[in-house]
């Protein structure tokens, strides 16, 4: 065993010794990722409804928001908020400065939320637009009100259709959350970089981080597979299970 360990190219003992730090990093990563997904998702529902409508003022306004946030790197968005906000005296003097805008965690959360909110809005807009027209007509003909049609027919069916694409968004938000480590936060990658820097290592910290991220992605994939089975069984059985599309949903389209 001893021999085997010494042959192994990574210093496992050192990783084990610092594992509590990595667990802390997992907490930071998961916290930021899922909080921003929850907030961004909550924001996306009304915005997607607006985008799917033909409102003459609101629709273009929301479009500009989603276009801008999907057209620029998350890293730049985060830097702009975290490093940029302090350029202005009135920001530094405002009541938001001390508790929020000078805090890396809050800046990351805000930037991530706005980012995932933009992607989720467009993803949901697509799902809403794909609602079969006849199903909406059937609801109209039954005398269901506009509100009831949205909340009972259009959205429930759009949410289900959006599940496969949303699983990609969740994974890409997790990938994107590494940006937190560039503004001093000790997320998984932050801890990995710290370990490498502290002990002058080439691999240990980064490989541990990679493995941890991999496990999280695996778990997320599993959860979504279950969700798809549960909520998409109303669709026709297909030859292939629900598209396992790994293409990133981050384009501007």
């Amino acid at each position: 065993m001893e021999n085997l360990l010494s042959w192994f190219p990574l210093d496992l003992a050192l990783i084990a010794e610092n594992f509590d730090r990595f667990l802390y990093g997992v907490g930071v990563t998961l916290g930021l990722t899922f909080l921003s997904l929850a907030l961004g998702g909550a924001m996306a529902v009304p915005l997607a409804v607006v985008r799917a409508s033909c409102h003459r003022v609101l629709n273009p306004v929301v479009w500009v928001y989603t276009y801008v946030f999907r057209g620029t790197p998350l890293l730049v968005q985060t830097y702009l908020l975290y490093y940029g906000a302090g350029q202005f005296e009135f920001v530094r003097n405002s009541w938001l400065w001390d508790p929020v805008l000078s805090q890396a965690w809050w800046c990351a959360l805000i930037a991530f939320t706005l980012n995932t909110g933009a992607y989720t809005t467009e993803l949901l807009r697509g799902a809403i637009a794909d609602t079969p027209k006849g199903e909406v007509e059937a609801a109209i003909a039954t005398g269901i009100s506009k509100r009831g049609r949205l909340s009972r027919i259009v959205l429930p069916s759009a949410f289900r259709r959006a599940i496969p694409a949303y699983s990609n968004e969740v994974i890409f938000m997790l990938h994107g959350s590494v940006v937190a480590s560039t503004i001093t936060l000790q997320d998984i990658l932050g801890v990995g970089r710290w370990l490498n820097g502290r002990y002058y290592l080439a691999y240990e910290g980064l490989i541990t981080a990679a493995v941890l991220y991999f496990i999280i992605v695996f778990a997320i994939t599993r959860v979504f597979r279950w969700l798809e089975r549960r909520y998409l069984r109303h669709l026709n059985r297909r030859r292939e299970p629900i598209a396992r599309n790994i293409a990133p949903p981050m384009g501007v389209k």
């Binding site: 959350s177 990658l189 490498n196 991220y213 991999f214 790994i246």
Partner: peptide, 24 residues
């Protein structure tokens, strides 16, 4: 190949290649 890429964030891989690759 596609599973690993989907499982690990870009920046982690970039750093692994840059710092680790150099040493290797």
């Amino acid at each position: 190949y596609t599973t690993v890429v989907r499982g690990v964030p870009d920046l982690v891989l970039i750093m692994l290649v840059f710092f680790g690759g150099q040493v290797t």
